[in-house]
Design a binder for these strands. Structure first.
Length: 258
DNA sequence: AATTCACGCAACCGCTGTTCG
DNA sequence: GCGAACAGCGGTTGCGTGAAT
């Protein structure tokens, strides 16, 4: 189940813990506490590094650690907290007495993420989109103001082009109003296509296959941003950094939908 | 029965924040 | 104010186990 025990080049033991090591660590901490993890292994007679000892204690040996299956209440709580806090596992763990951040993180990745995905796709509906938008924007709060401005610029570009795209699509004679069509002005299409290829398709092909362009425009409709003239602002962000910003922005929305 | 594959989870790695001299 | 040491965190990895073929 875990890495087989071995010694690294410094003579420090790594991998799975033995019962003997567990008892030594537990006995030492219960007697003397753990004020200095670096010194602790030497004093406890262990050939481990301090980090390894800390991890073993926090995740396994601590008397408050609760073993066994998660209750449905705990799972619901994790899903809700994950939605609110993101990957702040230590914060989430504080709300679940007896569960370590590592354990919760593992449980999320192996069980709950799928359930959360399923739950989202089942609940996805038009009336929720507005609140999703708010959540998406609140997801930006952790970013520096200048980064938010960068994202906003890129998002504005997306918004503007998408609006033109839809306008062009819906005013055309084509019966296909969902996706890039053959009737769109070729210059506009050439600008929209990279957007669709590089940003939208991963979502459309995944969780948001039925989400409309109108929705994405509403999500990206950031308030109080200067309008950019398309000729002066190429659609694709000019740098890799901008690209990452847009990606981060979009994923921050996805995070909140889970 | 043997082999392959996917899953679950303990442990590790690398980074960031905090404390201390 | 600065750098080193340390603690803590989140992402990733390695490998045992059981299910599927």
């Amino acid at each position: 189940m875990v890495r087989a025990p071995y010694f690294d080049k410094n003579g420090t033991k790594r991998g799975a813990w033995s019962q003997d090591e567990d008892s030594k660590l537990k006995a030492y901490i219960e007697t003397y506490g753990h004020r200095n993890w670096r010194e602790l292994p030497k004093l406890a007679g262990l050939s481990r590094c301090g980090k390894s000892c800390r991890l073993r204690w926090v995740n396994y040996l601590h008397p408050n650690v609760k073993r066994g299956n998660y209750t449905s209440e705990e799972e619901d709580l994790i899903i809700n907290l994950r939605r609110d806090f993101g990957s702040k596992w230590s914060l989430i763990a504080k709300e679940l007495p007896g569960r370590s951040d590592n354990e919760i993180k593992n449980h999320w990745h192996t069980h709950l993420r799928k359930r959360a995905d399923l739950s989202f796709s089942e609940n996805k509906s038009a009336e929720n989109l507005e609140s999703h938008e708010e959540k998406s924007m609140s997801g930006l709060s952790h970013l520096m103001e200048e980064d938010r401005a960068d994202i906003s610029l890129a998002a504005e570009s997306v918004r503007t082009l998408s609006a033109e795209y839809i306008k062009s699509s819906t005013s055309s004679s084509s019966s296909d109003s969902c996706h890039a069509g053959s009737n769109i002005d070729s210059s506009l299409s050439s600008k929209v296509q990279p957007f669709e290829d590089s940003l939208m398709k991963p979502y459309l092909a995944d969780t948001f296959s039925n989400t409309s362009y109108e929705y994405w425009i509403s999500v990206m409709d950031l308030p109080n941003r200067p309008f950019m003239d398309l000729p002066n602002r190429p659609f694709l962000p000019p740098s890799e950094r901008d690209m990452l910003m847009v990606d981060d922005f979009l994923w921050s929305g996805v995070e909140y939908f889970q």
